[in-house]
Amino acid sequence: MDQKRTAIVAEIPHMRRYARALLRDRDSADDLVQDSLERAFSRLDHWREGDSPRRWLFTIMHHLFIDHIRRDHRRRAAAEVPIEAAHGVATPPAQLERLQSREVLDALHAIAPERRAALVLVALEGFSYAEAANTLGIPTGTLMSRISRGREDLRARLDDATRRRSIRVVET
């Protein structure tokens, strides 16, 4: 029991990273982690010995994330508008790095949640296709198409951000 708790607690930093990839807002992301931990501790006997704690916890997170998306769906009828980033011609290197991070996160959160989840599990968390498909409860073929579309979407959004940035520079 105590071993199980230790194993789960050791996963919290990874759960937070996955949550932040799924949800832009830090508090909402930590809400998701907290809800997932509460559910995990109330169902410890559902976790079979030998199973990876991370996969089990991420499966719980995914279910709660889907609930969250469904709840939120109506409230978010309007399209998400990425935060306008740069505000000047000269951007110092340190700020440029933060700007890049912000752009890539904005782009990630602008793509469809199910594509985002598939892409993040494999590209960021290093899950195999089989593990990710299992965690998300979808066939491998569906997972693969979500990943490739997710990558395409991310690339297109990042290109938009770059274009917007250069237009601003020209205008200023």
Binding site: I12, R20, V33
Partner: peptide, 20 residues
């Protein structure tokens, strides 16, 4: 992918909020 990793790498070492 590298940009994405770098953008989220810092989360792992953040101090946990008390509720977690």
């Amino acid at each position: 992918r590298e940009k994405l990793r770098l953008a989220l790498a810092g989360v792992i070492d953040e101090e946990l909020p008390d509720r977690l």
